[in-house]
Write a protein that binds this DNA or RNA. Structure first.
Lengths: 196, 196
DNA sequence: AAGCGCATGTAAAAGGTTACATGATTAC
DNA sequence: GTAATCATGTAACCTTTTACATGCGCTT
């Protein structure tokens, strides 16, 4: 429950903090980046929405459309924003899957500027640690390991290096708020507080 | 059940095909590459072993060690090898997580040479498709998307490109069996056939 | 003597997928 | 008319984690 739980429920809450949506809208959005975080089924999406509603973190507004089945538009509440903030500020456990990091990355707008930097930095540290562990394992099993182990270690290493490179370049880009080579907008710090 | 099921159970079976081990041995091994495939708890590992035993895909040999609690060494059976082969030959579904691919990569020795190439090629196609989808999404939401979406899309793209590069270089290396720049052993074709 | 690493296991709870159920509109 | 897309939801099933339970040997 506590700690860096993946908690799909809170991720959905975070999406609703960006804009009010129906369950179907959320599904469609998740499908577009399913590679990063997977695309959960309705069987887990709708119950998640119902749970958020029960805890009063979101509200619903039924929007009937002549003839068609009505859409249920979910919106985040103030309590919801507060809860989301608390969840976002919990550090991820060292062995949290890539998915957990990606989820928070998508919700980056809910971070303060410093929070986002800290989050990326934390991930950098963890990936570096994992990478070091892989290198260690590679050196440990000298020659006698089966082909598959070599391949997996090499694969993991390549991905870790690529992720580190991305994290470094992104941290760099964010630190220098002077120019943005990529189509990145002005960094927002909070929904209410102006900026640093 | 069918299709490219991740099925931790079969993965464990595959590890036992490489060498006989106890549950604790398996845990230790998995911990070393937890970044790729996670490190499941004993609460799922032991039941998996019991299930394999019940299906007669593995056998146990209790190895008592004077005073110490006895270790249970699991070994794969012929039926087990057969079942494993069938499982390995099922193609992974397009939306199988990275974890599923990595699991089979670790078990690469159970593939035939052609099977391994096909598996890598298949992954290459899928990653390429996902990458194309991400690019499409990036072009779709022109400018109006929140910072987090940009970051996530960019992150996913960077990882996809790195994975494609690794897959290409590995496919290349495997195709040219003349020289091996990396510490890779001679490719085995079958479990029973000696080796070249 | 306290704590840690080895070594195995079970039970409750949480979370997820699959399959089912419903029903309207739009495209072929 | 038949299939696909939109749109919501429930129930059975499977898997996984978490927490508990046990007990030896070594080190501090």
């Amino acid at each position: 429950m506590a700690g860096g739980t993946v908690s799909f429920r809170y991720f959905v809450l975070g999406l609703l903090a960006q804009r009010s949506m129906s369950g179907y809208d959320i599904k469609r959005f998740l499908k577009s980046l399913s590679w990063l975080i997977g695309s959960p089924s309705f069987g887990s999406l709708y119950p998640a929405l119902h749970a958020l509603l029960k805890d009063e973190l979101v509200t619903v507004k039924v929007a009937p459309r002549k003839g068609k089945p009505p859409r249920k538009i979910y919106s985040i509440t103030e309590t919801g924003r507060q809860t989301l903030k608390e969840w976002m500020n919990q550090p991820l456990t060292p062995r949290a899957p890539l998915k957990a990091f990606a989820m928070r990355l998508i919700l980056a707008d809910n971070f303060s500027y410093a929070g986002l930097i800290a989050h990326l930095q934390q991930r950098r540290d963890q990936v570096a640690a994992h990478h070091a562990a892989l290198e260690q394992t590679t050196k440990g099993g000298h020659g006698k390991a089966p082909l598959g182990h070599h391949l997996a270690l090499d694969y993991g290493s390549a991905l870790a290096i690529a992720e580190l490179a991305w994290l470094d370049s992104t941290l760099n880009r964010l630190s220098q708020s002077s120019q943005q080579p990529l189509p990145i907008e002005v960094v927002q710090s909070d929904s209410t507080v102006p900026t640093v």
